[in-house]
Write a protein that binds this DNA or RNA. Structure first.
Lengths: 336, 336
DNA sequence: TTGTAAGCGTTATCAG
DNA sequence: CTGATAACGCTTACAA
């Protein structure tokens, strides 16, 4: 039912080549024919077929974004930034939910390849060798978002997790806390697990505070439930702590919930600092003090980098985004 | 760098027609040539070009999903369901963030039209006449998700808002509450504003309880901040209430935050019930009792309906999804 | 069972 | 300034 460039050409009494020139803002036609053609386009309500264009131009103006999860506002914030930057340049984004599943991821990659998308943003998960090799073969640019790889020269945008964790811990120390526990993610997660633990430990050491294995809880993930369980265990192992650094906001809010159940007042009896600054951080009771990642900006940045690579295909530098403490009500001064 | 069907044909020493038949599982070739071709495909790592296929088949295996916001877990839950169902049939989803902006929406619709997507899911916002007309012209199926329209025969999937609100209010009444306030969304929002207010009022009336304008707060939206402000005003206007029904979880959690600031204990001094059952509901302190919408299932349902329409192009019925109360800790019995 | 060739809706390279 | 015409990578009659 859609009209084609042929219909326009016929109605305007010109060749399709001329119509093509006009809709692509090229040169080589008179004002008069331009007007004639534009009127024909208007009259028919013609809109060019991006599929046909994609076939010949080898550019689909579509990018693929891979997410391990589609469930927290971390994703929405990231996605929101990507979507904005992408739409601003007239492209669109296809979302792919991999569930951290290798097979699903490969299937998605194949789908994206068949669709001949222009580029890939790979978020929040380790870039396995298999993925890298496949994407390399696809021959499209890719940028890593909220993750990075040491094995290959792929540009990324993320905060420095180790540094951010250090900042969070130091913040607690500055408030007078000396016995500080940590609820961490997976210590085998080399991207966002280990570095945050390292940051915590470094801060302790730099302040001559004892590092105590009992004060660190290792989890599988970064979820609310992990946080709930963790606080209970932590309190059993190290009842004397006055503050805890949680490696994600969900973990932190889980801990707050646990504290509430246990009758422990936050921050009066226990201070808690989170990591991420999701929207839930300001909704919690008490509002969560946390180290903020500029998630939306990171998404925008990643998309913009991708488009830059697309246009110039020169190498591009990675970006370490700034983090900062957002102080709310879940941490209080600790008298010495 | 990608190989084409021609390369495969040449390597296998057959015509491209034969290759096409084989990769499309048609009939009309010997086992021997099939084997030969499959080997060639394997050797080259050939993957069909979906763009070229789309051009000729008039099917892009891509759908567009329009969201007014990309910021809450309501969206992620919906999206997650859509994504799953879509990927299960080998299609992909393009996300469009309209910001409830008419101009942006129209631009998106145009983009989707140029991309020749197969269908549209329109979520959580009123389907303006202008949108409807445009989509009608696009001549692709559409389904409404978490919204509906009275002006046109467009299938939708949503819960019955009025009924769900009634259920929530009745739940409060069953717990012994008689003075029940409501924090509502926009009363001019005919989809999810007005019906929830009506449901609340009906429940009151059916139980011979007084309906008092002062006990209802009208907001612009459904946000956390609206909820914070609302509770303060509500308490000023009607200090004797023992329970409140909030028209969204964010509203409810905003109210809980306000109560906390005001030194009012939830649920001991004030019971609060929400609406949506987002993931934040279980993370709040106290955990929020709320009426649940099966968001992920709704997303899946909408996508499946779309594909059904695509395959059969017969008319399809709308679905009223079931709601239910999820009882947690924010509502308590009220002694008479 | 197989191959040839005509499209699908564009863009781009030629001539004129 | 304008118009044929050959791609782009595929599917599908129609022949062989």
């Amino acid at each position: 039912m859609s009209f084609t460039i042929k219909d326009v050409a016929k109605l305007a009494n010109v060749s399709i080549a001329t119509v093509s020139r006009i809709i692509n803002n090229q040169t080589g036609y008179s004002e008069k024919t331009k007007k004639k053609v534009l009127e024909a386009i208007e009259e028919l309500g013609y809109e060019p077929n991006a599929v046909a264009r994609g076939l010949i131009n080898k550019r689909t103006h579509t990018i693929g974004v891979l997410f391990p999860k589609l469930s927290s506002t971390l994703v929405t914030d990231l996605l929101s930034g990507i979507e904005k930057a992408t739409h601003d340049v007239g492209s669109s984004v296809i979302v792919c939910h991999t569930e951290s599943n290798g097979e699903k991821t490969m299937k998605y990659l194949q789908l994206l390849n068949e669709k001949r998308i222009d580029g890939i943003i790979f978020t929040s998960a380790p870039l396995l060798e298999e993925y890298y090799q496949y994407i390399k073969k696809m021959n499209v640019p890719m940028v890593l978002l909220s993750t990075e790889t040491y094995a290959h020269p792929v540009p990324y945008v993320k905060v420095n997790d180790r540094h951010a964790a250090y900042t969070a811990t130091q913040f607690l120390i500055n408030k007078g806390h000396k016995k500080i526990g940590m609820i961490s993610g997976n210590k085998d997660d080399i991207i966002s697990g280990k570095p945050r633990i390292d940051g915590y430990i470094s801060a302790l050491q730099d302040n001559n505070l004892l590092v105590d294995e009992k004060k660190i809880i290792f989890n599988r993930g970064f979820s609310f439930y992990d946080g709930m369980d963790s606080l209970k265990i932590l309190l059993k192992q190290a009842p004397d702590i006055t503050a805890v650094f949680a490696a994600s906001d969900e973990l932190a809010i889980g801990a707050i919930s646990s504290a509430y159940q246990l009758g422990i007042k936050v921050p009066d009896e226990l201070s808690i600092i989170g990591y991420d600054n999701l929207s839930i951080a300001e909704m919690s009771v008490p509002p969560l003090t946390t180290v903020a990642q500029p998630l939306t900006e990171m998404g925008e940045m990643a998309a913009n980098m991708l488009f830059e690579m697309l246009d110039s295909d020169k190498l591009i530098e990675s970006r370490i985004m700034p983090h900062k403490i957002v102080e709310r009500k879940s941490v209080r001064d600790q008298e010495v």
